[in-house]
Simulated scan of single mutants.
Amino acid sequence: MAPPAGPFESTPVAGGLLERVRAVVSRYPYGVVLPTGSELARELGVSVNRVRIALGALEAAGETVLRDRVRRFRLYPHELHPMDTAFDRAVREDIAQQVYAPGTALPAGLLGRRHGVAPQHLGRACRRLIADRLVTYRDGPAGPGYYLPDSTPAASAQQRRGTDGD
Score class of each variant (00 low, 15 high):
4 P>R: 11
4 P>K: 07
5 A>Q: 15
6 G>R: 04
10 S>M: 08
12 P>T: 07
13 V>M: 13
14 A>E: 06
15 G>F: 03
16 G>I: 07
18 L>C: 06
19 E>I: 03
21 V>F: 05
21 V>P: 01
21 V>L: 11
22 R>D: 09
22 R>T: 01
24 V>Y: 05
28 Y>G: 02
29 P>R: 14
31 G>S: 11
35 P>K: 03
38 S>R: 15
40 L>A: 03
46 V>G: 10
47 S>L: 14
49 N>R: 13
50 R>P: 03
53 I>W: 03
58 L>Y: 05
64 T>H: 09
64 T>M: 06
64 T>L: 02
65 V>Y: 02
66 L>Y: 05
66 L>V: 11
74 R>Q: 01
75 L>D: 02
78 H>A: 14
82 P>T: 01
83 M>H: 07
83 M>E: 12
85 T>P: 06
86 A>D: 04
87 F>D: 00
89 R>D: 09
93 E>W: 04
93 E>H: 06
95 I>K: 00
97 Q>A: 14
98 Q>K: 10
101 A>N: 09
101 A>T: 11
102 P>Y: 13
104 T>E: 15
109 G>Q: 11
111 L>W: 08
116 G>K: 02
117 V>I: 07
119 P>D: 02
120 Q>E: 13
122 L>K: 00
122 L>P: 01
122 L>W: 00
125 A>M: 09
125 A>R: 08
126 C>M: 10
127 R>T: 01
130 I>M: 05
132 D>S: 11
136 T>F: 14
143 G>L: 04
145 G>T: 02
146 Y>K: 00
148 L>I: 15
150 D>H: 15
151 S>F: 09
151 S>A: 15
154 A>C: 03
159 Q>T: 09
163 T>L: 08
163 T>N: 05
166 D>T: 11
